[in-house]
Simulated scan of single mutants.
Amino acid sequence: MYAIIKCGGKQYKVSEGDILDIDYTGKAAKETLEITDVLAVNNGELVTGDAVSKATVQAEVVLDGTGVNRDKKVIIYKKRRRKDSKLKRGFRKSFTKIRITKIAA
């Protein structure tokens, strides 16, 4: 059984026991998270639309990805040729690592 969920503007295909990184939610470790934005559920056959409007996905927060635990650094480098103009910046994105515990369809 798997479900397709929408979280933070992105879509994820998840099943029970999966661990994934989503956008930062502000939840601490060991808290539960309920995702109600379920797009599709497959339990033998794929069900979409109004049939999954009441489906939910339960998840447990494994790691709060802030501070030292942020994601890998992304480098942004801009250069304009023949202008002696360069700009190098980088940032580390905060995330929340979750484990899917239950898919209720």
Rank of each mutant, 00 (worst) to 15 (best):
A104N: 15
D23A: 14
N42F: 11
V74N: 07
G65W: 00
G90V: 07
G44F: 13
G90P: 10
K13R: 10
V52D: 00
I4Y: 00
Y12G: 11
A104T: 15
E45L: 09
K97M: 15
V47F: 07
E60M: 12
L87P: 06
R80E: 03
D71N: 09
I103S: 04
F95P: 00
I22N: 05
G26C: 06
C7F: 11
V52A: 03
E45C: 07
I103Q: 05
D84H: 08
V41T: 10
I22P: 02
A28Q: 02
V68S: 14
D64R: 08
L20C: 03
Y12V: 13
S15K: 14
A29W: 00
C7G: 04
D37I: 01
E60I: 06
E45S: 12
K78M: 04
L63V: 13
N69H: 05
G17K: 10
I22G: 14
F91A: 10
A28R: 03
K97N: 15
I100K: 02
S53K: 09
L46E: 14
T66L: 06
K10C: 02
I98N: 10
R92I: 12
G26D: 12
K30H: 14
T101M: 02
L33C: 08
V41M: 06
N69T: 08
G17L: 13
G90N: 07
V61N: 05
Y12M: 09
K93F: 04
K27D: 13
K97G: 15
V57D: 08
I75N: 08
N69D: 14
T32M: 09
S15N: 15
E60G: 10
E16G: 11
K10T: 06
V74H: 09
K83G: 02
V14K: 04
E16N: 13
Y24V: 14
K86G: 11
A55N: 04
I98W: 07
K72F: 11
E60T: 10
Y2M: 01
Y2A: 02
D84A: 08
V61T: 07
Y24D: 07
N43S: 14
K30P: 09
R81A: 06
Q58Y: 03
R80A: 13
D21V: 13
V47R: 14
T25Q: 01
I100A: 06
V57T: 08
V74T: 10
D71W: 03
K73E: 14
K86V: 13
I100F: 02
I100T: 00
Q11H: 02
R82C: 01
L39M: 09
Y12I: 14
R89T: 15
A104K: 14
I98C: 13
T96L: 12
R82G: 00
V62P: 05
A29H: 02
D37K: 04
I4C: 05
N42P: 03
N42H: 12
K6E: 15
A105M: 15
T96K: 05
E45H: 05
Y77A: 11
E31C: 13
I103V: 14
K72D: 12
C7K: 12
A55T: 12
G9I: 03
K78H: 12
V61Y: 04
V61I: 12
K10G: 15
M1Y: 05
